[in-house]
Design a protein around this nucleic acid. Structure first.
Lengths: 244, 244
DNA sequence: CTCGTTTTTGCGGGAACCCGCAAAACTTGA
DNA sequence: TCAAGTTTTGCGGGTTCCCGCAAAAACGAG
């Protein structure tokens, strides 16, 4: 019995996925559907899946959170992420939870029916990893590249996004306040807050902290969802820095 | 010749709209389509429309911006807004540009085919205004209600969201710095930043300014798009306060 | 182990923010 | 026009943030 899971909240897109799976040359006897993240997790748990296609933006739990749960149970499950946007925030979200050696794909919703069909084929049947072209550019980030954020910088960005003070961040990440400020400076630099405009009277126009968040948002490095998730992680574990 | 405009970037949804219009009992001889806000504005300018359905989230220009342009030219044009979310940010965006007496509708994409058909009928044929139920709750905001943001508070919220300092806001809105801070205090209060948690050593955990933005984002009072728009408004007119 | 590189930390001071208090200025309605 | 209510402003001081400088600590080859 070969079963696949489709998790997608929009009816139209769900139908579209179903259709594409049906006509693809793929051994599929059953398709089960979820319209939110929690259902997806539950269904994945109850059924023996051959693979899953997850929308990234869903009510209850995001596709990333669902994938994390699914992979925790079965790291070999092939998962295709199916998203509206190629935001760095989403890509990073996915990259952070992919277990080593997992097979997965990352497709944009703008992909044509054919492209999607081929991707399904590649990932589910041949076990390849395929990443949409627009997304690929963001993939290699996270390393030490000159102007891209490192993992630590990204973390601290989230910390100020949820409104933590330097103090609180220092406590959380288990470092001194000055270090936090040092990292913030790096972050500001990378976000291009070096030469901020001044008012006629020589005073600052922008508050670096808030400005950084605004810029990160508009350049899609983070988004509201990421912030919410960071927030809830903080709520349930204010000082994860100590353990990790 | 009766022509209607559909502006929607997602192919599937566009097809869906086309279909619903076709089967509705509405006198429609031609449907023209746009897949981004700019095209929508251009097309509306070139054709003599009977009405338009605009997606709120589109590349180039949002549905709100498009509607603003269209109404500027023809305030009598019936417009249906067709959105994914019932965020206060979007509703407020629409509310701010609706000219007095305009006929319009606000529908969510989760609406069924029937609901949509009826709405099209009501707005385009009978000239009624119809607002999706979930959205209606947000409608009456903006007045002096106890815990909802007034227009000024909303403006200042946007100002800090794009990273402006008290100074810059004061200059822009043409008031004293202390007034800005006063308004910020109101804003903080309404967002529930009154009793912020403290660290064990008595220091603050949250920076009110950043925290306010985070809370506003996660309660959907603003969203990244709103911030971007506020940003570009600021860029092209740093001190609109003086004129308006 | 040792040397060069990176990261973390302390120090210090200036700018920006937060906010209680109360007077001044503006609104509104009778 | 006057009184009551609201908003704006100034003052003052305590916090927090921002950041240059340089020493200390940690890291990574050779």
């Amino acid at each position: 019995m070969s079963t696949y899971l489709i998790a997608e909240d929009d009816v139209l897109h769900r139908g579209f996925l179903r259709e594409v799976i049906a006509l693809g040359e793929i051994d599929c006897e059953q398709v089960i559907e979820a319209e939110n993240g929690e259902d997806a997790i539950r269904l994945a748990h109850e059924h023996e899946l051959k693979g899953a296609i997850l929308d990234l933006q869903m009510p209850k739990k995001t596709g990333v959170q669902a994938a994390k749960a699914i992979w925790a149970e079965n790291p070999a499950m092939p998962i295709i992420f199916w998203s509206n946007y190629a935001d760095e925030a989403y890509v990073r979200g996915v990259a952070r939870i992919v277990p080593a050696g997992a097979t997965y794909g990352y497709l944009l919703k703008t992909a044509s029916k054919d492209r999607l069909r081929r991707a399904i084929q590649c990932v589910f049947v041949e076990g390849q990893n395929i990443i949409d072209r627009e997304v690929r550019g963001l993939q290699k980030r996270g390393q030490k590249g000159s102007d891209e954020l490192t993992e630590v910088e990204y973390e601290i960005l989230l910390d100020i996004s949820i409104g933590l003070t330097d103090q609180a961040i220092a406590a959380r990440r288990n470092m001194s306040m000055r270090s936090v400020q040092g990292r913030l400076q790096q972050l500001y630099a990378k976000l291009g807050l070096t030469s901020l405009p001044l008012m006629p009277d020589g005073r600052a126009v922008f508050n670096s902290r808030s400005r950084a968040v605004a810029l990160a948002l508009s350049s899609r490095i983070i988004n509201s969802k990421t912030i919410e998730i960071a927030e809830s992680e903080y709520q349930q574990d204010p000082d994860r820095g100590l353990r990790k």
